[in-house]
Write a protein that binds this DNA or RNA. Structure first.
Lengths: 367, 367
DNA sequence: TCCTCGCTGTTAAACGTTTTACAGTTAAAC
DNA sequence: GTTTAACTGTAAAACGTTTAACAGCGAGGA
């Protein structure tokens, strides 16, 4: 199986040049005579030679890898983030090492530690809790780091890219109240997660301000199936709310599953706003109205920040905060007479219409 | 930013031992006196030292990385594969480098080439077409390789893990015919992909055998949105079929989206069988009946084969073929009188019931 | 003609580990 | 009391690159 791979030396010998020349041909650091270059390339091809990254990295100290850590590789939000990061990484010829912390603080530390062993050019991490991993906090001065999504912007020790979670809560809350909803349930994953708390705060505050009511927040965890059970259980012992606002894509799934199991009609009996924007949300008779996170933008910005840091920038940690938008589709119904709890039309807006807050001031926005 | 990281030598100096001892403490290859070990560990912690993988790998030749190549990091099937592989990799303390070929044969080659540059312990690849990437074909003798999913088992140059695609087609086809469906559409991604052709073959053959009818196969590509448009367009110029069998998770989404846009009721007007089994499929009023691929099993087997090869096994390429099952839920309706094309009950089986072919002979099955 | 310069190519010294061969020390065996 | 064996620790040689430093050699300027 393992006939040893060709080395610089062998290629050099075969092409009748020094190893430095071969190295130059591959790295392009110094010009090489055309005729020699041809010979080297021929020899390399014949031996199917390829630079050994370990050796290259050891000597040069440069890595051309980034480590990406996420809390869950089964969560579409994180994988779509990874997908986009991989695209930009390729463009700048970096490779990507992925690791999942599985929402486990301890595993997070150890995964980060091994990631660091690669001496990567940088780390993009979605922490699994508010508190920045100790490894990262310690190492942040030595390695470019960007924290994404689950972060408290204020206290950050590194660059961050997040959405305006409070505003996301507000947008959904406002829309729901405007549609006449009063009895609203907030389907959170876990209130231990700062961004989730922010979304709740945003929704609660605007709902209270506009309607004087207090929405109910329930925690469904970060597993859809279990979340569905919890929610179903909750539904059994409470009167049907008129609307549900799911705060993550997983709780969206959980709520939808529970509602479907109990044969609750959407939006006739219960309106719902989901979180994140995925194809399956439109692949239904009553397409889902949802808060859309700008995943592309998040990934782009994270990569941009990382490159800036790799480039040697040592300025203060830079927080980027992006805005979400509401994709209005068909899962929220207008209640004609709020007090009666009954209405006519499913939704006023055109399906597909977007209520975008893009025009509003974007604090800390790059450019 | 980049104060240099501590090295073995520095730790050794601080602990007052030789670098060999420090190395032994970390690798555990040779026993080290407890008192010394303590000293070394203390020194290491103080310097927040961590073995440099590049150096380690260069010297030892062992990598503890595997490269994983998939055609699309936005496709849940592939990411769930990666998720499971990452779990097993961690268990055996390997790291995972991911790369996407974006269904581009040329990119596939180059991604594979760079992957190889890491001198990984092995490669797990989902090729983007039938023909095995040239790099891999050339290198397969030197590096443990497992090909997954999109593979022609017979001609494989390396270990393969696939599902029985023909059988998957048969299962769905048989079920549909048994439910009284005759006018069936096969929503394929691309007939250039061997497994898809097999699924089509399986469905066509059994449908023909049982009902004498020929289903129509249409190609929707591997992008859900575009697929939806193509299918919508097709629907406009053809009479409604009584059932759709979607052959991939993306075409499932595409078909569902198109059907929803045209306000077609499922299963009243059209029955549908999807592919793959994801949470969103159950998170709907009429939960989706679908062919389930055993993703866990696929990942487990792929990893197992890889480990066997890494262990030095040089026997003939080993094909593993897994069986799929039909998750019967609510999206297929029984047609009472096939000729009339109208029926009564949505489905005979209990929702959630599984028609499993597990008991059948499993060719080439491990164990 | 001599000197300098630009252009290419080479030599050789690292980079931070792993690992072999060896040395020293103590315990067990005879 | 000597020999052996069992343990631990160390010195030093790689691993395959990158990258100074340097060398050879025409050409152009003085």
């Amino acid at each position: 199986m393992t006939r040893k791979r060709a080395t610089l030396t062998e290629v050099a010998k075969r092409a009748g040049v020094s190893i430095a020349t071969v190295s130059n041909v591959f790295s392009g650091r110094k010009p090489v005579n055309d005729e020699l270059k041809k010979r080297v390339e021929k020899a390399a091809k014949e031996l199917s030679f390829q630079i050994d990254r370990a050796a290259s990295q050891l000597k040069s100290g440069k890595a051309r890898v980034v480590g990406v850590l996420v809390p869950d590789l089964d969560d579409t939000f994180f994988t779509s983030l990874i997908s986009r990061i991989e695209v930009m990484a390729l463009k700048d010829s970096y490779d990507v090492i992925v690791a999942s912390s599985r929402d486990d603080k301890q595993l997070e530390e150890s995964r980060l530690q091994t990631l660091l062993g690669w001496r990567p050019s940088g780390i993009i991490a979605v922490p699994c809790s508010d508190i920045v991993p100790a490894v990262l906090a310690r190492e942040v001065a030595h390695i470019p780091t960007v924290l994404v999504d689950r972060v408290i912007t204020q206290s950050a020790v590194a660059d961050t890219v997040t959405i305006d979670n409070f505003e996301a809560g507000e947008i959904a809350g406002r829309y729901l109240v405007e549609m006449g909803h009063k009895d609203i349930v907030l389907a959170a994953s876990s209130l231990d997660i700062a961004p989730i708390r922010e979304r709740v705060r945003g929704a609660v505050s605007i709902i209270h301000k506009m309607s004087g009511r207090e929405p109910t927040a329930i925690e469904l965890g970060s597993n859809a199936e279990r979340g569905a059970e919890i929610f179903a259980h909750w539904l059994e012992r409470h009167p049907l709310p008129s609307a549900v606002f799911a705060l993550t894509n997983v709780t969206t799934l959980a709520a939808l599953t529970a509602l479907a199991r109990q044969r609750v009609d959407i939006p006739e009996q219960v309106s719902i706003i989901g979180f994140d924007d995925y194809t399956w949300m439109s692949a239904r008779k009553t397409a889902l109205t949802a808060i859309r996170q700008p995943v592309d933008e998040i990934a782009r910005l994270a990569w941009e920040r990382l490159q800036i840091r790799i480039g040697g920038d040592v300025s203060e940690p830079h927080p980027s905060i992006l805005n979400t938008s509401l994709k209005v589709r068909e899962s929220t119904r207008r209640l004609a007479d709020p007090s009666r709890g009954e209405g006519l039309k499913p939704a006023e807006e055109q399906p597909g219409e977007t209520i975008d807050n893009a025009a509003k001031e974007r604090p800390n926005r790059i450019h």
